[in-house]
Amino acid sequence: MAKKDGDHRHEPAPMVDEVSEFEILEVAVRELAIEKGLFSAEDHRRWTEYVHTLGPLPAARLVAKAWLDPEFKKLAVEDGVKASLEVGVDWVKDMPTQFGTPSDYCNLRVLEDTPTLKHVVVCTLCSCYPRPILGQSPEWYRTPNYRRRLVRYPRQVLTEFGLILPSDVEVRVEDSNQKSRFIVLPVRPEGTEGWSEDQLTEIVTRDCLIGVAMPTPGVTANVKLPVHPAVNPVPHH
């Protein structure tokens, strides 16, 4: 916003560019729940702080372990919840609920890619995500755009992430719509022979675990996506 000459007021930038209707709805429901005594503001703060301590590192380590140990790989594919214990995630008894997870359900399936099969995960109905082992979902994962397009145009959407797959590779979209949560176990890339578990963990990014990227030696960051301006910007008075 252009300022007039001689205007020396210091205006703080808005905290956010845009507040969506869903965020307003969340605040309204949360305040009603606190007023009704379903949980306290203190409970809510502890819960929020807890879920923000979670991240994708345990899942990356699970994949690295599976690459190095065929027995562990077998366990991971058969029983993801049991395999998670090896990387310090207890889907059933972890904080804060101790009867499930921040997404309520404790059923993790590890989807094993092969050279001719590539999995990619979406939740078309909402944004189900294996939060205990992957942390909070990226913003794009929750957008209607990703959710409705991935099931119908998977190859086009993967291309936007920079992943172009030949036609002899079967793309399998996993629509996470019920009580299972999913991570992808990608194929171990070439050029990682003799690597340690720590080295392998570094290249298994969050995007590789969702399935929109392939692990690549030397790449330890998620895919960079363009940032678009707010559709309904918060006015800056």
Partner: peptide
């Protein structure tokens, strides 16, 4: 060209 592509979900 991509007739081998699949989708998995639970019901």
């Amino acid at each position: 060209a991509y007739e081998s592509d699949t989708l998995e979900t639970e019901l």
